[in-house]
């Protein structure tokens, strides 16, 4: 019961906080959401795959590839 009351208090704290925001807060939240969408669903997904993770399935192959790059670099 006590736990539920505490959880309700925390919920109300955030609810009232978000509900009572000024216009600038709403603007920046919109920017944050838009920014995170661009970063994770556009840039990360389409432009920034992890090079070694997509090229090799295990750490041994990744290590061997990097050693090859370091000891025998090719354009």
């Amino acid at each position: 019961m006590k736990l539920l009351l505490s959880l309700k208090k925390i919920w109300m704290f955030y609810y009232e906080g978000f509900a009572g925001q000024k216009s600038w807060s709403r603007q920046v939240w919109l920017i944050i959401i838009l920014k995170l969408f661009i970063m994770f669903f556009v840039l990360k997904l389409f432009f920034f795959p992890n090079f070694l993770k997509t090229k090799y399935t295990n750490d041994k192959d990744r290590g061997d590839y990097v050693i090859e790059q370091l000891t025998n670099p090719k354009k």
Binding site: W24, V28, I31, I32, M39, L43, F48, F51, V66
Partner: peptide
């Protein structure tokens, strides 16, 4: 708050770049 909100997570891009463009270095 404005500065924090606009700037938050802009550093994550650098971590994306480590994995994609700087993989030899990251490894």
């Amino acid at each position: 708050g404005i500065n924090f909100a606009i700037g938050v997570a802009t550093g994550i891009i650098l971590e994306f770049e480590f994995g994609t463009n700087w993989s030899n270095y990251s490894w």
